[in-house]
C-alpha cells in the first residue's frame, strides 16, 4: 500500500472521530480504497469507515492488505499532522508495520513514524449501507452536536422522534427534562444550516446518551450529518467527506418496553 493524503489532517480527523469509541480496528485495503469497521466493547456501537481513492492525492494498493492498529497508538503519531503537511501511508507486502511519512516541502521538513501492526480477530458484520429506512434526516452537524451536548447533561437516555412536524430530541431526567424541536428549513445564505426530512412513517427511538457523546466527536469531518432511523433497528449517524467516503456509526436502540 502506498497512499498519500495531500493534507495530513484529513487522516487525523478520521481517526480522531472514532478513537474514543473503539480501541482497535482492522483497515482493509484494496484497490478500491480503505474500508474498516469496529464494534465498541459493550457491543452497542458499530463504527464504519470508508476512505476511497478519491480522498487521496495518489493511491496504490497492489494486493489486498489488512492493517490492524491500536487506535490510541495511531492517534499519538497523528498529533504531528498539520494542514501544511502531506501524509503518505506505506505498508510492505508482508505487513508487520505501518510507515507514516509526513512531508512539509515548504519547510524542508519530513517526519517518519513506524507503527507496529497488531493481529486483530474481529468478525466483520454484514451491513447494508443502502439499508432502507423509515426516516432520513439531513441536518447541520453543528446543530446536532449542540443539541446532543445540551440534552445529554440531563439524562443518560436520549429519545429521537420524527413526525411530519419535525424532529424532536428529548430527555427525561430525574430532576429535569428537555426537548428540542427542529423543523425543516432552507437557509439560502448558508446551505449547511438546511434541515430536510424524508419519511415513510413516524419513529420514536431511545438511545444511551454516552454513545451520542462519542458520535458527535466525528462532527469535524463534515458540517452535515445524515441520520437514518427505522423502528427497532440500529440508527445510522453518518458524516460524509467532501471527497467521498466518510464515517458512520450504527447505534443499537434501547428496547421499547
Amino acid at each position: 500500500l502506498e497512499a498519500k493524503f495531500d493534507d495530513s489532517t484529513i487522516f487525523k480527523k478520521i481517526i480522531d472521530s472514532f478513537k474514543d469509541s473503539v480501541t482497535q480496528i482492522n483497515f482493509v485495503c484494496s484497490e478500491s480504497g480503505i474500508e474498516a469497521q469496529a464494534i465498541d466493547d459493550s457491543r452497542v456501537l458499530l463504527v464504519t469507515v470508508s476512505i476511497p481513492p478519491s480522498c487521496f492525492e495518489s493511491y496504490r494498493c497492489d494486493r489486498p492488505t489488512t492493517i490492524g492498529v491500536y487506535l490510541a497508538s495511531l492517534a499519538k503519531l497523528l498529533k504531528s499532522a498539520n494542514t501544511n503537511s502531506s501524509l503518505t501511508l506505506y505498508v510492505a507486502d508482508k505487513p508487520d508495520e505501518l510507515l507514516l511519512l509526513f512531508e512539509e516541502p515548504k519547510n524542508q521538513k519530513s517526519m517518519e513514524y513506524k507503527l507496529k501492526l497488531v493481529d486483530i480477530t474481529a468478525d466483520m458484520l454484514e451491513v447494508d449501507s443502502d439499508m432502507k429506512s423509515d426516516v432520513t434526516v439531513e441536518m447541520s452537524s453543528v446543530e446536532f452536536t449542540k443539541t446532543v451536548r445540551d440534552l445529554t447533561q440531563l439524562s443518560d437516555s436520549f429519545t429521537v422522534s420524527v413526525t411530519k412536524d419535525g424532529i424532536v430530541f428529548s430527555v427525561q431526567g430525574d430532576t429535569a427534562q428537555g426537548k428540542v424541536l427542529l423543523q425543516p428549513r432552507e437557509d439560502l445564505a448558508d446551505e449547511s444550516n438546511n434541515l430536510s426530512i424524508s419519511m415513510s412513517k413516524t419513529i420514536d427511538l431511545s438511545f444511551a446518551s454516552k454513545y451520542l457523546l462519542d458520535i458527535i466527536k466525528a462532527a469535524s469531518i463534515s458540517n452535515k450529518i445524515f441520520l437514518k432511523f427505522s423502528d427497532d433497528t440500529p440508527a445510522l449517524f453518518e458524516f460524509k467527506m467532501e471527497k467521498g467516503g466518510g464515517v458512520g456509526f450504527y447505534l443499537a436502540p434501547k428496547y421499547d418496553d
Binding site: V44, L46, M124, L125, A208, A252, K254, Y255
Partner: peptide, 14 residues
C-alpha cells in the same frame, strides 16, 4: 431503566 439491545443481533456475520 430501559434495557439496551446489542448491535450483533441486528447484523449477520460476513
Amino acid at each position: 431503566n430501559i434495557p439496551q439491545s446489542e448491535i450483533d443481533t441486528f447484523f449477520s456475520e460476513n
